[in-house]
Simulated scan of single mutants.
Amino acid sequence: MSQEESLQPVIDFIRELDKLKGVERKTRPLGLARFENSAEHSWQIAVLAMVLSRFAERPIKIERVVSMLLLHDIGEIDTGDTIAYATEGLEQRKAAEHAAVKRISSILRSQAGGPFLELWDEFEAAETPEAQFAHAMDRSIPIILNLANNGQSWRENGIRYEQVLKRNGPAVQAGCPALWAYLQQQLDEAQNSGWFGSIEDCISQA
């Protein structure tokens, strides 16, 4: 195999990943009017994991965590992003996302596609220390940004305080208890400040 032949799948893969920059999420970057994209989200949680690795509940291999976080949303190139609090059709969405990751990874042919799909599966299963810590980072970033944005996406999407606790608390607690203790205190203060949606908001959007 020539050098050009070995490099082309990598270039094709990277070009495909560029599409993740066009996948819009529900949270706005601080100080900007637009919404963040999934590529920005993946980069930010990878950095957060590096900085907070010493607070992990169990010993972890941080390189594996970072790899998971950089890859965990690439399936959204095909499926788009869905707000974390939407539970209807979750199983079907995850199946579609798995198929998308398999398709995207196959662009690399035999070079790295298999391991990338394995990392995605490990993240989704959330059973290893690395996957649990990665989940803690993934669930925390939207909270951190909303706390800095006066609850922007919570208010805009009618997300209630109880939903945020139920959806994120167990995952963050399992992977990084110190971070959840900090966030829970901040969430209580946000509740007192009226930064969450209400039941009426949820009904009006149904």
Score class of each variant (00 low, 15 high):
162 E>Y: 00
168 N>Y: 14
154 W>L: 07
144 I>E: 10
133 F>E: 00
139 R>N: 11
154 W>K: 03
148 A>T: 02
164 V>N: 04
115 P>W: 13
158 G>H: 14
161 Y>K: 13
141 I>C: 11
153 S>T: 02
122 E>W: 01
137 M>S: 10
115 P>E: 12
163 Q>N: 11
117 L>C: 15
125 A>I: 00
118 E>P: 04
120 W>E: 04
159 I>C: 05
167 R>C: 12
129 P>R: 09
154 W>Q: 06
131 A>M: 07
161 Y>M: 14
148 A>Q: 10
148 A>V: 01
133 F>Q: 05
127 E>F: 02
121 D>P: 00
116 F>S: 12
146 N>S: 10
143 I>C: 10
139 R>Y: 05
151 G>K: 11
115 P>L: 13
140 S>I: 02
117 L>H: 15
123 F>A: 00
127 E>Q: 13
148 A>R: 12
153 S>F: 01
119 L>S: 04
119 L>H: 02
140 S>V: 07
115 P>Y: 14
159 I>A: 04
153 S>C: 00
147 L>P: 09
120 W>F: 02
125 A>Q: 11
145 L>S: 09
154 W>T: 06
120 W>S: 07
133 F>M: 07
143 I>V: 14
169 G>T: 08
150 N>V: 11
124 E>H: 07
129 P>F: 07
140 S>H: 09
131 A>E: 03
156 E>T: 00
136 A>S: 09
126 A>L: 14
137 M>C: 12
134 A>V: 09
169 G>I: 06
